[in-house]
Design a protein around this nucleic acid. Structure first.
Length: 108
DNA sequence: AAGCTGACTATGG
DNA sequence: GCCATAGCCAGCT
C-alpha cells in the first residue's frame, strides 16, 4: 500500500459530515494535481481499507455522484449523503458550491 | 510484457 | 453550453 492511498484516506476522513469535496481538490492538496483519477482509484481501494473512509463525500468537480456504482448498491452513496442533509437533482448535489470543502483551504 | 481501463479535469471548437 | 481531445498513472488482462 503506497503512501498516496493513505494520504488520500487521511484527507477524506477529515471531511466534515454535511460537506463534500472533489477528487481534483484532494489530488491538488496532495501535490498530485492532474492525477484526480488516482484519487478515484484510491477510493476504490478504500473499500478494502481497514478503517472507515467516507468515500461518499468525494464527488467530481461538478458535484455529480459519478462514483455511485462503486458502492454496494447504486443508491448507497446518494442515501448516505441525503442522511447528512444533502439535496439532489438526480445525481447532482444541490448547493454544491456551499457544501464544497476544500482541503487545501480548510487544512492549510 | 504491452495495452486497455478508469470513482477526473482542463481546454478548445 | 455541449462534444472531442489530451494529460494523468496505477492496476488488470
Amino acid at each position: 500500500m503506497s503512501d498516496f492511498f493513505t494520504q488520500v484516506y487521511e484527507v477524506v476522513k477529515q471531511i466534515p459530515a454535511g460537506r463534500v469535496t472533489s477528487y481534483g481538490a484532494i489530488a491538488k492538496y496532495l501535490g498530485t494535481t492532474g492525477s484526480a483519477r488516482m484519487v478515484g482509484w484510491a477510493m476504490n481501494a478504500a473499500a478494502s481499507h481497514p478503517e472507515f473512509v467516507p468515500a461518499h463525500r468525494v464527488v467530481n468537480r461538478n458535484g455529480l455522484l459519478t462514483g455511485k456504482h462503486h458502492f454496494d448498491t447504486p443508491n448507497a452513496m446518494k442515501e448516505l449523503l441525503e442522511a447528512e442533509g444533502f439535496e439532489f437533482d438526480g445525481d447532482q448535489i444541490l448547493n454544491f458550491k456551499e457544501r464544497f470543502w476544500d482541503p487545501g483551504k480548510e487544512l492549510g
